[in-house]
């Protein structure tokens, strides 16, 4: 359908990932938007890996330690992320249980796997086409922030339910490590230069 596509890099030029302006080789900052133009390289992938590992490490205490401490009439119960989901299901709120399960367990794990896969695909041969990997990256980028839902839920519950003896809710330490895990994986995805997906492609698309 179209003429073969040449990338800015193949033409010996540098394209700005923020605004698209094309610069001569050797340019450091974009003349139009002031963004950093340093060339993407496998070394930049190290930042992706580092943030990802950090995110994985703090994801462990996020699941082990309690997210919520509920005290009602003198009895205190602590619940973890998974415990909270199970509790919601016991109450019959399957929809909400689904949202929380999806946001705090499925999305983070899927995100870890997706970033690992994308980072590996830059240096290795993979089956998935560039278009699908490009889409996958955009899904990861878009969906990452939604994992914060559970942290917000804990904050709202803790601020709202302070009815002295009748019922009170306090946040657990897992809320902190979960928030950190979400933030670290977001930084990991943001440090991934999506153009690396296409750089590995020697043959023009279409």
């Amino acid at each position: 359908m179209s003429a073969p596509v040449v990338t800015a890099r193949q033409a010996g030029l540098i394209g700005c990932a923020q605004c698209g302006k094309v610069h001569r080789d050797g340019a450091v900052t974009c003349l139009r938007c002031g963004s950093d133009l340093r060339p993407r390289s496998a070394a930049r992938l190290q930042a992706v890996w580092a943030w990802l590992v950090a995110g994985l490490v703090v994801y462990v205490p996020a699941n082990v330690y309690p997210m919520l401490k509920t005290s009602s009439l003198g009895r205190t119960t602590e619940s973890t992320i998974l415990g909270g989901v199970v509790e919601l299901m016991h109450h019959g709120s399957y929809g909400i249980a689904g949202i929380v399960f999806f946001a705090s367990i499925i999305i983070p794990i899927a995100k870890f796997l997706a970033i690992i896969f994308l980072a590996l695909s830059v240096t290795r041969q993979v089956r998935m086409s560039h278009h699908y990997r490009h889409k996958l990256f955009h899904v990861v980028e878009f969906i990452g922030r939604w994992s914060m839902i559970d942290v917000f839920v804990v904050a709202i519950l803790a601020s709202l339910v302070q009815l002295n003896f009748a019922a009170s809710i306090a946040p657990g330490i897992a809320a902190v490590s979960f928030a950190l895990s979400v933030a670290f994986t977001m930084v990991s995805a943001l440090s991934f230069d999506e153009r690396l997906i296409w750089d590995a492609d020697p043959v023009p698309a279409e």
Binding site: T7, A8, C16, H134
Partner: peptide, 11 residues
Amino acid sequence: SLIACPACDAL
């Protein structure tokens, strides 16, 4: 007169 695609660097 050129623009590089911000997503894939196509010139």
